[in-house]
Amino acid sequence: MNDQEADDLLARYLNDDVSEDEKAVVNEWYHKLAAGEELPDPRQDFNQVKSVVWNKIQRKRIIPFYRYAAAAVLLIFFGIGGYNYYINKSANPVKTNIVQDILPGGNKAILTLANGKKIILNNRKNGLITHEKQTAINKTNDGHLVYTAPVKKDASVIFNTITTPRGGKYELTLSDGSEVTLDAASSIKYPVNFTGKERLVEITGQAYFEVAHDKTKPFKVKAGEQTVEVLGTHFNINSYGDEPAIITTLLQGSIKISIKKDDIVLTPGKQALVNYRDKIIRVQNADTEAAIAWKEGHFHFNKAGIPDVMRQLSRWYDVDIEYQGDIPKRSFSGNINRNTKASVALQILTASRVNFKISGRKIIVTP
């Protein structure tokens, strides 16, 4: 079995699309592989972990090769979070009570037209959806919404809104060519055509922007009381109301962030935090990988507390979170694929020695 076939087996395993024999293969041989001898710490040298695992595969010829390949891919796929989970589980057993499961989020959104009409985009057929002021709105084969404005633009301004539910995500190309990706439980309000002296949109929740350059018409994003002004750049805004601050992370170009009478210019690799309480802009070095991990299809945690982790899971899996008892202050670092079922994510999180139970569309957290 080659690497691609092993990756495919793991992907099917995580989505519960394997036979009982294949499931047993992945589970049994991973545990034997991980427990057979001490592995290097992936936080120090992850490539060494991979080397050790594959060397084991080459040495063991009695059992069919594909069993070890799947196990190796499982270890490598989960990375630090999964490694810690399996090692800690053997030393400190943690109970999980998962008798149900919840599928991950997907491409879901509602488009609200200028006249108030709502169009559910989830299962909408590809192709032309409608026209707004001569601007064509099309859904592409990959589920991307694209606005194509006429050469001669109408001077009047009308607005559309795209809203993603919990468990949803959606991509949009505005009429100026700017690309926007919305995370779960988010929205963006925007003109069908940008006809004035600026390009102004409003968001809630989290959105990633790749703005088309136009030095004559600044692009502005309003998130709560904060406004971000750009000419052409890549940046991410996290403005969820249940988070402690609005966090704007710049990947390319430059942006100006304003709130009340305060403003700063952000440079690549930096992020601005605007606390909801004092409305003061603070600048710090950014973990850009963490900032856009959601867009790339995974959760990325760096010493995140359980409440921080559970807020993200709540939005993506469309579940409520209930805490029972005195939850210890634990932290978690690592990556979790957002295409996995809720039970897989929770099993990895048991590395922090906290128990979880799925009940309907609720995750119950206990000590």
Rank of each mutant, 00 (worst) to 15 (best):
L174W: 07
K220S: 13
T148S: 14
Q100P: 10
A136H: 05
A114W: 09
T288W: 03
I348C: 07
G127N: 00
S19Y: 02
H31L: 15
R199G: 09
E132P: 13
A245S: 10
G167K: 02
I237A: 06
T140D: 10
A342F: 11
I62Y: 05
K270L: 12
Y190L: 01
N15P: 14
S156T: 12
G232A: 12
K217A: 06
E198V: 13
M1D: 10
E225M: 08
V365Y: 04
T233N: 07
W54D: 05
Y30V: 05
L121H: 01
A351V: 15
G253D: 02
Q324W: 11
Y30C: 08
G177R: 09
P150I: 11
D278F: 04
P268R: 06
D320Y: 09
I63D: 05
R282L: 13
D183W: 11
K362R: 14
L172W: 00
P268Q: 02
V211L: 01
E38I: 14
A351W: 15
V192I: 14
P307G: 03
E322L: 15
D41C: 06
L103E: 03
P42G: 08
R67V: 05
N55T: 06
I237W: 06
K139W: 13
L266D: 00
I76V: 10
V192M: 10
K56M: 03
F78V: 03
K197R: 09
T233E: 06
A245Y: 04
I158Y: 13
Y83W: 10
H298T: 02
T173A: 04
N84C: 07
A72T: 04
Y190Q: 01
D318Y: 04
D278W: 04
M1W: 08
R166D: 00
I57S: 02
A212K: 13
N2P: 07
D214S: 07
L39F: 07
Q324L: 14
K189Y: 11
I63M: 08
L250R: 12
S19I: 02
N141R: 03
A272N: 01
N122P: 10
T173Y: 01
V309K: 01
D262Y: 03
A345Y: 02
A184W: 09
K139D: 14
D3F: 12
K357A: 07
F46W: 01
E243I: 03
K153G: 02
Q324C: 12
K169V: 12
N27C: 05
P218E: 09
R61H: 09
R59H: 01
Y85G: 11
V18L: 07
Q312Y: 12
V319T: 01
K56F: 05
A24C: 01
I158C: 08
M1N: 08
P93D: 07
N2Y: 06
S333P: 15
D263W: 05
T249P: 11
V53N: 02
